[in-house]
Structures are given as structure tokens and as C-alpha cells.
């Protein structure tokens, strides 16, 4: 399987319902993108929830040469404050930088993006909505659409791609992914937004049909410790 992440716009915004797997996707995407491009920055914009954020894996990402930007006082500061680092502007303003914005869950988490909308010019950004059909509020068409609309209204820019990341953690089967795919196809048709990726565990990718809509993206569970 070959991915071509260069096809995506320089600024990639990852949004979705919390628990959809945004952060897991963002971290895996950053590592894959670094293999294709020299300068990659991952900005952890999650100021809603102090658990399971991409900054927890900062050292792993930094070892790979990825720039990780999180709170103004560094990755380890567990202040329960809505605090952003001014350094986020650096990769956004640097045309050489590939940027991934890992955003907090729901419209509440996405609100922070509104501060950066000046950088999200049509054709120069991608905003990917991560969908997990096993999450309580995004199990059906109306649920997903309402999530997308709420987030779009909050941020002020449009979603450009869907990511079917339907999963039940390690229990995920190809059947689960296809259940989510059916939903993603429905959303895609209704909103006229393409399915950009189908992301799932490596072992499951081999069981998916070859004509599935969207590029298949094999992910590793990086955020979840082995004992969990």
C-alpha cells in the first residue's frame, strides 16, 4: 500500500467527535508524512481535555524529526487552562512547513481554530473530519452531519475530506470498518465531501475490499498503552 500524503494541502486540520480517534490518526499521519516531507509540524490544539493528547507522545515524534507544538509552557504542563503556544504561528506562516493541527473534540474543541482562520484559505488547507460509527453521537447520518455543521459553524471554514476511522479499539474487525464506511459514503453523498482515508489497524487493512472509497491508511495504536 502506498500513500501519497503530499496530495493533501499544506495545512491539515483534524477534527471530529471526541473518541473518534482524531489524535491517533493525527500522530500516525505525522509519522507517515515525515517519511515523505522534510519539515513536518504537529500542533496539539486540544485545550478541552488534559488526557490522551498528542503531546503525550512528543518525544517519540520529536525523535523522528517532527516539530511538536502544544502549550506555552511545554508538553508536560498539565495545567487545566485553555493555553496555546504562540509558536503555532511559525509553521502556519512558513510555506516550507507541512502542518497538522490536532484539534480537541466536538465544536467545543474546535472553537480554538477560529483564531487561526486567516490561514485557512480555500485551496490552501484541508480539514478532515474523523468519523467513528461506534461513537454514541455519530452513529447515523444526522449525527455526523450535525457534528460537521456545528464544527464548521464554529471554525468558519468547510470540511474538505472525511476519514472513516470506525473502530472498537483492538476488537476492530473489517466488518466494523465497513459498517462505518457505509455511513461515511452516506455522509459523503449528502454533503458532497470526498472520503479521503479509511484508517484502521494494519491487520484489518488486508481484509478490506480493494475498491473501497478513500485511501487505506494503516495505523498503529500509539496513544493507547499496551496494557490498556
Amino acid at each position: 500500500m502506498t500513500l501519497d500524503l503530499k496530495k493533501d494541502k499544506r495545512i491539515r486540520i483534524i477534527i471530529g467527535h471526541y473518541g473518534s480517534g482524531k489524535t491517533e490518526f493525527a500522530v500516525n499521519y505525522a509519522l507517515a508524512l515525515k517519511k515523505e516531507m522534510p519539515k513536518v509540524a504537529l500542533c496539539d490544539l486540544d485545550i478541552v481535555n488534559p488526557y490522551f493528547r498528542s503531546r503525550e507522545k512528543a518525544s517519540l515524534l520529536e525523535t523522528d524529526g517532527i516539530t511538536v507544538i502544544s502549550g506555552a509552557f511545554g508538553h508536560q504542563t498539565n495545567l487545566d487552562l485553555p493555553m496555546l503556544s504562540p509558536s503555532i504561528l511559525a509553521p502556519l506562516q512558513d510555506d516550507e512547513s507541512q502542518v497538522i493541527l490536532d484539534v480537541g473534540g466536538d465544536a467545543v474543541g474546535a472553537r480554538v481554530l477560529a483564531r487561526y482562520t486567516a490561514y485557512f484559505k480555500p485551496g490552501e488547507y484541508d480539514m478532515f473530519c474523523v468519523i467513528n460509527a461506534y461513537r454514541e453521537q455519530t452513529q447515523d447520518l444526522m449525527g455526523v452531519i450535525s457534528h460537521i455543521k456545528n464544527i464548521e459553524d464554529t471554525v468558519g471554514v468547510k470540511v474538505t475530506g472525511l476519514i472513516n476511522n470506525t473502530h472498537l479499539l483492538r476488537e476492530t474487525s473489517a466488518e466494523d470498518v465497513m459498517k462505518g464506511q457505509a455511513l461515511a459514503v452516506e455522509v459523503s453523498k449528502k454533503l458532497n465531501i470526498p472520503i479521503r482515508y479509511v484508517s484502521t489497524l494494519e491487520k484489518v487493512t488486508h481484509q478490506l475490499p480493494s475498491d473501497i472509497e478513500g485511501d487505506v491508511f494503516a495505523i498503529k495504536m500509539i496513544m493507547r498503552e499496551d496494557w490498556m
Binding site: Y18, G19, N132, Y134, R135, E136, Q139, H167, L168, L169
Partner: peptide, 10 residues
């Protein structure tokens, strides 16, 4: 059927 939930929501 199973749903994926966060502990606090569950």
C-alpha cells in the same frame, strides 16, 4: 450492540 464510550459518559 456495542458502542465506544468514554468512562465518564458511560
Amino acid at each position: 450492540a456495542k458502542v465506544l464510550m468514554k468512562g465518564n459518559e458511560a
